[in-house]
């Protein structure tokens, strides 16, 4: 059901191609926040940076491309070894992933 065991297992995953540490099974957004990544994407209409807001799957502000699928909620999605996540609607100038 959930892969978290009593001893937290540190894994490595990738955000926009860069490696980050995470604890296996915790939501992607938590691992990223711990590493100081608070901007999880940019709003499609306004272009401004967005991040974690409700943390329980209601607001969709933390939507990212995860496992090749767009608009996955990073506050719910469990991180695992080798997982690839991408921030969406990257402003020009910051470089497309």
């Amino acid at each position: 059901m959930n892969n978290t065991t009593d001893r937290p297992m540190v894994i490595q995953f990738y955000c926009d191609g860069e490696p980050f540490p995470g604890i296996n099974g915790e939501p992607v957004a938590m691992s990223l926040w711990r590493s100081g990544v608070t901007t999880l994407g940019w709003n499609e209409v306004t272009g401004d940076p967005r991040g974690l807001y409700c943390a329980i799957g209601h607001c969709f502000e933390c939507r990212m491309m995860i496992d090749g699928v767009r608009d996955q909620r990073a506050c719910l999605y469990p991180v695992r070894e080798g997982l690839e996540v991408f921030r969406q609607t990257v402003p020009t100038g910051l470089g497309e992933p």
Binding site: M30, P49, G51, L52, Y53, C54, A55, I56
Partner: peptide
Amino acid sequence: TEVPIPLVNWTLPGVLAVGAAQVMTAVY
């Protein structure tokens, strides 16, 4: 679900529904 308080600039990363801060701190 939480009732929001709209503020100027409240879409900035780092603005959280109070329950989110609880989940971050207490669960993870």
